[in-house]
Amino acid sequence: MDKAISVEHLKFAYPGVDDTPDIVVFEDLNLQIKQGSFVAVLGGNGCGKSTLAKHFNSILLPGGGKVYVYGMDTSDPEKLIAIRRCTGMVFQNPDNQIVANVVEEDVAFGPENLGIASPEIRNRVDRALKQVGMYSYREHAPHLLSGGQKQRVAIAGVIAMEPKCIVLDEPTAMLDPRGRREVMDTILKLNAEKGITVVLITHHMDEAAQAQRVVVLHQGKVAADGTPREVFSQVELLHSIGLAAPDTAELCWELNKHGFDLPLGSLEPDECAQILYEALKV
C-alpha cells in the first residue's frame, strides 16, 4: 500500500443553524498522501484545514465523495476502530487531550482502549515516552509540565498506539517558541526514524518549510501543491490568498521588485545569505 490517505471528490458542508444557509467547506477536493511522507497543510483561517484533518479519522464523514485511509472507507462504521488505530490525531490544546493525571497513565490510555495485554502496554508506553524524550517525566502530573512537554506527552499517547500516520492539527499554536521547536523536532524525528506518515496542519510558514511537501488550501480547494521550494517561490499566489511566504522568500521577492533577479526558493537564512552574496559580489 503506497497511499496512506486518499481524498476523492470530497464534499462537505456544516449545517446552518436555524435559517442560515449551510456553510460549504469543500465542493470537490482531491488529495493523495503517500505512506511515509511528511506533508504540511497550510491555509488561512476558515480555509478548511481543520475540517480536512477531522476527515482523516472519521470524526467528520464526507457529505459526498470518499476519503480512504489505508484503503479503508472512512464512512464505513465497521472500519472506524481500524481507521483510528492507523491514524492518530494530535490537537491544538494539549490540556484538553490529556485524560489521566499521571503522564504514563495518559500514554497508556490509547493502548488500554485497544485491549492490549498489560506487559506489552508497559513496553509501548516506555518506548513512546523515550521517543518523545519525556521518559524521565513518566510519573509527573501533566498540569505541572510546560506546554511543549504536554504536547509531547500527547504525541507519545498517539504513538503508543503504533499508528502508521499521525495527523497534527496546529499542535504548536498555543506554545511558546521553545515548545514549538521541541514539538517540531519530535515530529521530524518520528517521520525520519519510524517512517510514520505525518500530516501537519499549520499556519506557521517556517514549520511548513520543514516538510517534504506543502499543500496550500484556499476556499476548500488546493491552491498550491509541491515541495516547500516550489510552493514558497509562488509569492504572489500566497499573498493573493492572505498568506505570507517565509521571510527569506519575501526578502528575495521584494528585492526582485527593485531590479534584482534572485531565485525565490531559498528557505534557510544561510542559503538566502549565500544567494545575496552571489548577487552582490558581481
Partner: peptide, 20 residues
C-alpha cells in the same frame, strides 16, 4: 474537545479495555 480526543484514541467505554 476531550471527548473528541478520547474518541480519536479509540475509547469505546469499558468493554474490552485492559489496564497497564
Amino acid at each position: 474537545e476531550l471527548a473528541t480526543a478520547m474518541e480519536c484514541r479509540c475509547y469505546q467505554g469499558g468493554d474490552g479495555r485492559t489496564k497497564m
